[in-house]
Structures are given as structure tokens and as C-alpha cells.
């Protein structure tokens, strides 16, 4: 179970972060020691702070993850296997990749205690967010020793 703050970003936000890094421009948020949850939430019901918010398929972020980890990102959370380049980046940076239960958007909505938009608001559900979670269930999928619960490809 995870407790604490984390960033939320998926495809388009990753593309933009990578483009900023590659052009030596400042990032909207420091990645140092950060966790990124691969997720794009459904809209909140009136009175709620977030809608359904389960993990998306992590492999689509594979082209960006090693670069982001080399810029300080410590941990990513998603569903599904990663490329070996990501597993290598996890080991190299003493990081982690965590599996969150796929399809369980309603369950994860109950774990979120705060939501703040950090950047890329024009992307709608793909904006870069910071959320705080409580009792957020995950399984360690790739650890800093290279232990991987998925077959490596």
C-alpha cells in the first residue's frame, strides 16, 4: 500500500516532458525522487475530487521512461510488462516499477485524497497532475535488483 504524493502523467505529457528535456528547457516540475502514475482520470462526480482513476498500459511510456529516470524519476506505476531498456533504467537508477491493478478505476478513486493540476491543462484528461494517495494497492513489478514479475522482452 502506498501513501503520499505522486505525479500523474500519460502519453502526451510524457512526449512534452521528453521534448523539454531534449531541448534543455525547464520542466514544469522537478522529477528528482518523484513517482509517476500512468493514469488519466475520468471526471469527478459532484462532491468528489476525482473520478475513476486506474492505471493505463505502461509499455506506451517505455520510449520515455529511461530518459525521465536519468533525470531523477525514481518510480513509475502502471500496468503490464516493460521493455528491457526500462528494466535496465530501473536498476541503473536504483528505482522501481510498480504494478497497479488494471481496470480497477473505481477502487483507486477511493484512494486519492488530493488532486492538483501542475501543467498541460490543455490536454484535458492527459494533463500533468499531482495527487496524494492513501492505502493505494500495488505490487512491485521491477525492482532495483532487476527482479521482474513479467517475462523480459
Amino acid at each position: 500500500m502506498l501513501n503520499g504524493p505522486m505525479l500523474v502523467a500519460r502519453d502526451q505529457a510524457h512526449g512534452r516532458l521528453a521534448a523539454l528535456i531534449e531541448s534543455n528547457k525547464p520542466l514544469p516540475v522537478s522529477l528528482e525522487g518523484e513517482t509517476i502514475y500512468y493514469m488519466g482520470p475520468a471526471p469527478a462526480k459532484p462532491g468528489d475530487i476525482i473520478g475513476s482513476c486506474g492505471p493505463t498500459t505502461a509499455s506506451r511510456m517505455d520510449p520515455y521512461t529511461p530518459l525521465l529516470m536519468d533525470c531523477g524519476l525514481l518510480c513509475s506505476i502502471g500496468k503490464g510488462p516493460r521493455l528491457s531498456a526500462v528494466a535496465d533504467a530501473v536498476v541503473r537508477n536504483n528505482g522501481l516499477y510498480l504494478y497497479a491493478y488494471g481496470g480497477c478505476g473505481a477502487l483507486y478513486a477511493a484512494c486519492v485524497t488530493s488532486v492538483e493540476t501542475i501543467a498541460f491543462e490543455d490536454l484535458g484528461p492527459e494533463a500533468l497532475l499531482r495527487i496524494t494517495v492513501r492505502n493505494f494497492p500495488v505490487i512491485a513489478a521491477i525492482d532495483s535488483n532487476g527482479k521482474n514479475i513479467y517475462p523480459v522482452s
Partner: peptide
């Protein structure tokens, strides 16, 4: 977790998956 999520979605009228 899947079965719990199905219940949570029904109880809170939230989409099963985002």
C-alpha cells in the same frame, strides 16, 4: 481487486475503469 472494484463501481456509481 477486480471483484472489489466491480462492487465499488456499483456502490459509488463510478465507471468501472477510467
Amino acid at each position: 481487486h477486480i471483484l472489489q472494484n466491480i462492487k465499488d463501481a456499483e456502490t459509488h456509481r463510478l465507471p468501472i475503469c477510467q
